[in-house]
Design a protein around this nucleic acid. Sequence first.
DNA 1: TACCGCATGTAAACGGTTACATGATTAC
DNA 2: GTAATCATGTAACCGTTTACATGCGGTA
Lengths: 175, 175
Amino acid sequence: MSHRYLVLGLLAQAPMTGYEIKKHASCALRSVANASYGTLYPMLHQLLDEGAVQMEEYPQNHRPARKVYTITERGKQELAAWLHEPAQSDQIRRDFLLKLFLAHDLSPDDLRLMLQQRRAATEAELAALREIQSAVACGTPPNQLWVSDYTLTMCQAELEWLDRLMAQMGPDRLE
Amino acid sequence: MSHRYLVLGLLAQAPMTGYEIKKHASCALRSVANASYGTLYPMLHQLLDEGAVQMEEYPQNHRPARKVYTITERGKQELAAWLHEPAQSDQIRRDFLLKLFLAHDLSPDDLRLMLQQRRAATEAELAALREIQSAVACGTPPNQLWVSDYTLTMCQAELEWLDRLMAQMGPDRLE
DNA sequence: TACCGCATGTAAACGGTTACATGATTAC
DNA sequence: GTAATCATGTAACCGTTTACATGCGGTA
């Protein structure tokens, strides 16, 4: 259901096509919510049926028409109502943590490898976040910067945790 | 698919009933993966069909028979193979962060309320984690302690982040 | 008396991903 | 020449949640 509000929320900021919504969801919102076209387009059709958005078509040559969606008053009200209700708790599926939990008969070397792989992945995500953050900078509303700052902070905390754990496990023998 | 390995992994530690698996998933593994009976029981049946687990029935009076599942050699192999492949990236759905991102026309007071609610929720989770951690203590394998330690560390980092943000937003006017 | 724990399960609905279909334009 | 970008969508499948069904025994 949260994709509904993702769409409404982005349209509240500016009229957009489905394609543009997807881009936002894959960039600035990457760490918060992702959505595929298979979710997005049907969602837009549904919102249109329900009168939460409007649509205007702009034909193009040799390309499907741009369908620009605009939020309606009704859509705005629904969005505001959702924003005001308390946030649901996070739904997290961490393959890494599950593996760590169940890794009781993994060899020390395999375990260390697992931690190092996680470290590399987290560092890569941190780099990607820094890229995004430096790309926006000026005109972005503060609350959107907070979101990437949040994710960045969490990445850093995780890196520190991983380093502490690996140090505690003893000196490196693998690389 | 990860619920498959959650089940296999727990059964690798000790034979269990579906009910007991659910308890583990709701306690120690709460922050990693959750599973409802609607997922768990069909999964056990499927694993049984595939020969990854065995089942022995213990009839009881006035109650459904306890069905104790045990992992087979084949199940152990599958689990080991999964443990050795690199972890998939986290799948996270954070209602709170989405709201924060989209909250550009929320009043400052509403925003502050949102942050405070999040703070309370996180603090509650931290307390729950501390409870769990103090309850286990001695016999628990270290990698399982690491998982709760990880989650605890993340909670603390988030609390600090929230406090920094609220301080930055200016002095409290609400309570 | 009321609720919680024990213990099994099923069925319908839901939300989402993946893969497919189409195809011109532009940048490397 | 190859890949990415623009731009729409559909259909099959998959995994999961929610609600339902049953019901005794112990505790507050």
